[in-house]
Amino acid sequence: MKTFKAYFKKEILEAVRSYKYLILFSGIVFWAIMNPLMIKLMPLLLKNYLPTDLSVLFSEYTIDAAFIDFMGNLFEIGTLVIVFSLMGLISNEVYSKKLVFPYSRGAEPAGFVTAKYIHYMFTISLFILVAFLTNYFYTTRLFEGGTLSIGIVLKSSLLYIIYYALLLSFLIFLSSLFRRGLVVGFSVAILAYSLSIFNRFNIIKAYFPNYLLYKAADLGHVFDNSLIPIFIISFCMIIILIFFSILRMRKIDIA
């Protein structure tokens, strides 16, 4: 618990000093504001350059469509921002020998790993929630039509939060395995994007993490029983990945 507290405080200080909060906030919340504005303003800006039939596509956006479009962009861009800003969470500390002092004075690997995970899980969750609510605020003012309600927004945001909590556990685990942050970053990014493929296969899609994102965009039925397997899988995966990260940090040579 001592190590957890020490590292939790240290992560907050580090995130402020290295502008990680700012980067994550911009990467996640930026799209919540920009996405509805772009959809709304695009037809006006491009009306002289686009054929009439294409500009109709932009003008027909409903609240629901604008919200789904935002979620798609958040996944594409937000994932990159999260993965590449947090890719060195553990590897940088090991590689630059910053753990020598804490470990030589009895720091607990469990406290070290969980402090990092919980800190960034809360940070990302908070920013996602803010982003979803911000987007809801703008889309409901800029667009008309659709079934979107605050309840649906909260449910969809929860699925995104679970998805990124799982992605973060992958990031932590790979960061404890590899010494180079870039290897971790690319591995997790490839994993995140490639798993989307499984959403095309109806029989198995419910067992892969990207199903959470698929269901978040299914505004009429965000929560249903089909989510139970992936909830269980995600929860178990997070526990397993964090457990193996701790195990790895117990066995690793620090100096």
Binding site: L13, R17, K97, K98, V100, F101, S104, R105, G106
Partner: peptide, 16 residues
């Protein structure tokens, strides 16, 4: 290790 103090040859800190 709690009763041990270590001064490494090249100490590394959190520079911020």
């Amino acid at each position: 290790v709690k009763s041990v103090g270590y001064l490494p040859e090249t100490p590394a800190f959190y520079n911020y």
